[in-house]
């Protein structure tokens, strides 16, 4: 599936962006999320959600205030059933696949997507220089 991801995404990720490896696909349990600090800012700024063989990546910023990270504890990005992304500050719920807020203070707004690529060997890469680009992989 890594091959599919890489081939699917390779055409849409701008080569000007710096791609940084976050982890390997096998490091992410299915139906789970994890935060990363690829720019070494001292706190997680990007998170990825795995649903089966799909990986979704977003900036860790709730659109409600625009500068608030989502989880109440590291990596706690999903509701207890893994069905939606949740911002713990005021309870906003977002669709995993689109980042669209479907309930809560910023209803109708979306999490900023981050271009993501799954390489042939299963490495997961994100583009960290483009805050509002977008993508899903595969």
């Amino acid at each position: 599936m890594g091959t599919d991801g890489a081939s699917t995404r390779s055409g849409s990720v701008n080569s000007m962006h710096r791609m940084i490896k976050l982890c390997h696909l096998d490091d992410l349990p299915e139906q789970n999320a994890r935060g990363f600090d690829p720019s070494r800012e001292g706190q997680d700024t990007v998170f990825v959600v795995r649903q089966g063989n799909h990986i979704y990546a977003y900036k860790d910023l709730c659109p409600h205030y625009g500068d608030t990270a989502l989880p109440w504890r590291k990596d706690e990005y999903l509701d207890p059933w893994g069905g939606t992304i949740v911002c713990a500050a005021h309870g906003a719920h977002f669709e995993i696949a689109t980042g669209l807020c479907i309930d809560g203070p910023c209803m109708g707004e979306s999490l900023p997507k981050v271009p993501v690529q799954i390489m042939d060997n299963g490495d997961i890469l994100v583009a960290i220089d483009e805050p509002h680009g977008g993508g899903e992989s595969p």
Partner: peptide
């Protein structure tokens, strides 16, 4: 203030 699993701070 801290975020919480209550969906409020």
């Amino acid at each position: 203030y801290f975020k919480s699993p209550f969906g409020c701070n």
